[in-house]
Design a binder for these strands. Structure first.
Lengths: 345, 345
DNA sequence: AAACGCATTTCAAACGTTTGAAATTCTAAC
DNA sequence: GTTAGAATTTCAAACGTTTGAAATGCGTTT
């Protein structure tokens, strides 16, 4: 149940020097033996490695980092940790980073530019080796990231396209295609009056998704109706206002709805139910997200656009590590697209 | 819009040595000036600090950590990051840690002991200065944490009470009181047949909550009925089985329900609706969690026991840092209770 | 028996910081 | 103008690791 290794350990950590003393050889030999240098005799290597294992030697990361002039820390800046998309993306980033000997520091901006700037400063002081950033909804100026560039610290932008910043690395969801497929599915199910509920106009994917919607309509010979489009943000009141606009005229009301985000969709449906909209039960909706709570809703969306946040995150960190390893030249700007998947419920 | 500070920076980081050379004084003076040593002349202090600011000097953390024999990293082990309780507790931990110059590394165990053991080993190799742990649902043996104890690395257990491990620091929610108040509210609303749906028996708070339930009944002269108690875990099928047991006899069915976790409550309600239980709309429920999705449910719980996860997390890290600062002796085992709050919807 | 070549090990400096002890400069009193 | 004493600065070692250069040991060749 316990014990057997009760060796009574000293509580000072084991160092190379200590191992060297025990084995009566030099520190450099020990270091090289553990790092498997070819010039070291196989016999001594074994001795050293055995001893290291026996004494539970753990290399001191601070010393190594100091020597290598690295921190092995990646900074992650994102708008909101309570949003499932970001939580899941963090999961992907974390996994991959840890597997490659890196740690991450997460900063939430609450979609606020000032907070984003503060985060940048803070992460600079933490001496991150690299940065992964989902910009705030109103980031147009990128000068708060200049200092990273000056220091040669690579930045990968993810999820949110920094369209004002041409020369940069980005990893984005292929949200155009996702929205195209969602719209297409609704058309296939016989809908002709399909509304699009978009997000903050400053966020790039709002437009990509809108274009997916438009293109699906066009490819299926459905005329675009400007009255079937409305925009909101992450604020409930604005969502309700948008829905009111879309469903103002009961006779002309849409029979289906594509929303840029599932959570916003929930607010929309809730509102329509609260005013007892006559066709509410017939309205079919699709949003981006694939939230696990969907299964508890009485009027759930008929499908979800799964954005694969873990994969987006993983692609971002993977690219960043390649930049850090100089596997990709820092000025050789990359753009990675991650596919969405339409999940029918 | 940009510029004005376009100083054209070198891309090698600024060090004390560099500052010293610029100022033509010794490195130690620079160091002491920046650290505000009383032996340093105020005049030179100002010079040094001005120069440091001008050149954007950032102290090298690795070097400091090496010198101080610290990593300034806290390991956090918890069952599941997709659970809102833990996400929110992480938020509290993260905030506090960062403010005090610490970083955190998070490990998910998926409530699996083997994974918890692996996490412990991994964090040992990361040389964490301290550990915050929410044990897995079947952790009874704590030997995988022995090495931390040997090395004098403090551990704070949180949320889940390690009842098999007497001598340890813990920060727990006052879940007894929370459940007492929830039950009491239902009684006040006229219910007499109140069911209790408990969680995995290995998790300590299952019993604390049960005791809260029992005591509320007793204090209100309601006889305890063993048929009104059932247990489940985080698995949907088991929850359904438990509900089937509780509602087997329609005439004797409970009119109210207290659940050890809101998410489980959602499954329960969903099931009752799916079988069209005759009294389903009259059943009043309360669970632990206060999930924001509640507002989208058609039959929402009438109240939630808000567990204040941020506060639990913050208390845990705060205690840990006190242990690290020797403000509290490591053998002077602490127990901190964080109150819940009944939120009526 | 000296000299060469090879395998293996050790030396020593470096990474950037901190800090007690030692050295230097300054002030003021005699 | 010497000197005690304080104020200020510098020295030097240390934290634990890595790594190219230098040194050592040893067998082989001549």
């Amino acid at each position: 149940m316990h014990g057997r290794l009760e060796k009574k350990m000293s509580n000072t950590p084991i160092t190379l020097k200590l191992l060297a003393e025990k084995l009566k050889i030099s520190v450099s030999t020990v270091s090289k033996a553990l790092n498997n240098y070819p010039t070291i005799n196989e016999h001594t290597k074994k001795h050293v490695q055995d001893m290291a294992r026996e004494l539970h030697y753990i290399p001191n990361k601070s010393a190594i980092n100091l020597k290598e002039r690295k921190s092995r820390i990646i900074g992650v800046i994102l708008p909101n940790l309570l949003d499932h998309f970001f939580t899941r993306s963090i999961y992907g980033i974390e996994q991959f980073a840890t597997q490659h000997g890196y740690q991450i520091i997460i900063r939430q901006t609450k979609d606020d530019l000032a907070e984003e700037m503060r985060s940048a400063t803070m992460l600079l002081k933490s001496q991150v080796d690299g940065l992964i950033v989902a910009i705030s909804k109103n980031t147009q100026d990128f000068s708060h990231f200049n200092e990273f560039e000056n220091l040669g610290i690579p930045i990968v932008y993810y999820t949110r396209n920094p369209s004002f910043n041409l020369n940069c690395h980005k990893v984005l969801g292929n949200t155009f295609k996702g929205c195209y497929e969602a719209t297409e599915l609704l058309i296939k199910r016989g809908h002709r009056k399909i509304a699009y509920l978009g997000g903050p106009k400053m966020i790039s994917f709002t437009h990509d998704r809108f274009n997916g919607y438009i293109n699906a309509l066009k490819d299926n010979d459905i005329a675009f109706d400007v009255n079937l489009v409305a925009y909101t943000d992450f604020d409930k009141e604005n969502t309700i206002a948008a829905i009111q606009k879309l469903f103002a005229d009961v006779n002309q009301a849409p029979t289906a709805l594509v929303a840029f985000k599932e959570l916003i969709l929930f607010d929309a449906i809730k509102y329509l139910r609260s005013i007892d909209h006559p066709q509410v039960k017939e309205i079919e909706c699709i949003g981006f997200g694939n939230n696990s709570f969907i299964s508890y809703l009485d009027l759930p969306p008929i499908a979800s656009v799964e954005e694969n946040p873990e994969s987006v995150g993983e692609n971002a960190i993977s690219l960043l590590l390649k930049l850090l390893d100089k596997e990709i030249e820092i000025k050789n700007y990359q753009k990675v697209m991650v596919d969405c998947k339409l999940v029918v419920h």
